[in-house]
C-alpha cells in the first residue's frame, strides 16, 4: 500500500515537473507576442503622440497585454522618479525585474534590454529604426519559440509522466 502511494506520488510529481517545463515552451511565444504588441504601442506613442517617455511608458502599460504590462509600468515609474540614471538605467531595472517572472530566455531578455541603450536619446526617426529592429528580431524569436514549443511542449508533458512511471516500475 505504502509502495503504491509512493509510486503514485513519484509519477504525479515528475508528471507535473514535465508539464511545467512544457508550459514554459508554450508560454514563451505568447509572451513574446505580448511584448511585440506593447513595443508597437510604444512606437506609436513615440512617433505619433510624441509623448515624453515616462508618460509613453505609463500609457503603454495601461493598454498592453497583461504579460508585458509590468515591464512598462516599472520602467515608467522609474523614469518618473527621475533617479538620475536616465532611460537606459530605468529600462535595465525594469527588464531585470520583468525577467524574474517570465518564460523568456536570456536571449529574448538581452534583446529587450539592449533597446534601453537607445531609448529617448535621439530623434523620432532614429527611435523608430531602433524599435523596428527590435520588433523584427522579436519576430524571429517568435518563429523560433513556436517551433521549439511544437517540438518540446508535448515531449516534456509525456516525458514527465512516462519517466516517472518508468522510475516507479524500476523501484517497485
Amino acid at each position: 500500500m505504502v509502495k503504491l502511494l509512493g509510486a503514485s506520488v513519484l509519477v504525479l510529481g515528475s508528471g507535473l515537473a514535465g508539464v511545467s517545463v512544457g508550459g514554459n515552451y508554450t508560454r514563451r511565444p505568447r509572451e513574446l507576442k505580448s511584448l511585440q504588441t506593447a513595443l508597437k504601442l510604444l512606437a506609436t506613442e513615440i512617433s505619433y503622440a510624441l509623448s515624453p517617455l515616462p508618460e509613453a511608458m505609463a500609457n503603454v502599460a495601461a493598454r498592453s497585454p497583461a504579460e508585458a504590462a509590468s515591464l512598462f509600468r516599472v520602467a515608467g515609474a522609474e523614469l518618473a522618479a527621475n533617479t538620475g540614471g536616465g532611460a537606459a538605467q530605468a529600462w535595465q531595472k525594469a527588464t531585470a525585474r520583468f525577467g524574474l517572472n517570465t518564460s523568456l530566455t536570456g536571449n529574448d531578455l538581452a534583446l529587450v534590454n539592449q533597446l534601453g541603450q537607445a531609448l529617448g536619446i535621439s530623434d523620432r526617426d532614429d527611435q523608430m529604426s531602433h524599435l523596428e529592429l527590435v520588433l523584427h528580431q522579436i519576430d524571429l524569436q517568435i518563429d523560433e519559440a513556436q517551433a521549439a514549443a511544437a517540438k518540446n511542449a508535448r515531449l516534456w508533458n509525456y516525458l514527465g509522466f512516462l519517466g516517472g512511471l518508468a522510475l516507479a516500475l524500476i523501484l517497485y
Binding site: I46, L50, S51, P52, L53, P54, A56, L79, N82, G84, G86, A87, A90, L119, G120, I121, S122, D123, R124, D126, Q127
Partner: peptide, 20 residues
Amino acid sequence: LQACVELISGSSLYALEEEL
C-alpha cells in the same frame, strides 16, 4: 553632455522636434 541632454529632455529627445 549626453547626461545633461537626457536630464533636460526628460529622456525624450524625440519629443523636442520643434525645439531642436
